[in-house]
């Protein structure tokens, strides 16, 4: 496995797309997080506790989750490049097994999820340390970081799966970028009650919007009819099922296909 990751890294480290996207990601997230306190939506402002433990983790994870799709584009480009350049084929000719091909890419998916999650945790930690009075609360709310890890892993695994199934790079990237909307539309038209179980919705439900103004919360409680809503725990279970499915279906498809 170490050897496989080393091979992938040799291909990845000089990919310009990766560098550009990671730089955008790294700069934008703390900037937006910091800028949030200046935003007013009608009568609502976000509470000051957004920068303090334990809520800082939830906020930063929520903001970062909007950029998952962007980082997923790296996975998408990286994976579909191998098909476009026929290097996936050449790697197998040179001696990798098809299982190695999938395993190596999933290794990179995992690595990206870990790196991105660590960065988000760091941003949360720094803001928390600066704005909190009580630093003993350091790891309070840290479970949101775990949820963020699963969300990113989910989006990346989806990108990886998609690149392997839709073998035309341009089409795959466009469909991937619009996949959240497409899933939303399908859910809205066909199966509103079940849309919470759809993969991308599951991933995004893992990180709930951190702040619901008291007034709105009351309204929601009054208006929403009794209906099962998946909590964070169940979303996590479903997310893991989806991630596993994406990887195994990718393997199954590549194993059977002439590449």
């Amino acid at each position: 496995m170490k050897n496989l990751i080393a091979i992938e890294w040799m291909k990845l480290r000089r990919l310009v797309t990766m560098k550009v996207i990671l730089i955008i990601y790294a700069i934008t997230i703390p900037l937006i997080y910091f800028g949030l306190s200046y935003i007013k939506i009608g009568p609502f402002t976000l509470p000051e506790s957004m920068y303090q433990f334990p809520e800082c983790y939830n906020y930063v994870a929520y903001i970062a989750s909007w950029f998952n799709l962007l980082v997923g584009v790296i996975i998408m480009v990286f994976t579909s490049n191998e098909i476009k350049y026929k290097t996936q084929r050449q790697n197998v000719i040179d001696g990798l097994s098809k299982r190695d091909v999938i395993l190596a890419k999933f290794g990179i998916v995992l690595l990206f999820a870990v790196v991105v999650t660590l960065y988000v945790a760091l941003v949360g930690l720094i803001f928390g340390l600066i704005y909190s009075d009580d630093a003993s609360q350091l790891f309070n709310g840290f479970e949101q970081i775990g949820a963020y890890f699963l969300t990113t892993l989910g989006y990346f695994a989806f990108a990886f799966f998609f690149a392997n199934i839709v073998r035309m790079q341009a089409l795959a990237i466009i469909l991937y970028i619009f996949s959240t909307f497409i899933e939303g539309i399908i859910g809205f038209i066909a199966a509103q009650e079940y849309s919470q179980f759809f993969p991308l919705t599951t991933f995004s439900n893992l990180i709930p919007f951190p702040y619901v103004p008291p007034m709105l919360a009351e309204m929601e409680n009054a208006n929403i009819p009794e209906q099962f809503m998946m909590g964070q725990g169940w979303s996590a279970v479903f997310a893991m099922v989806y991630i596993t499915l994406f990887v195994f279906v990718s393997y199954w498809v590549i194993k059977r296909r002439d590449i």
Partner: peptide, 15 residues
């Protein structure tokens, strides 16, 4: 079949 954004040497390193 090689990675177009890598040099000849880097491509052969992968192989």
């Amino acid at each position: 079949n090689f990675y177009p954004y890598l040099t000849a040497k880097q491509n052969l390193e992968i192989v």
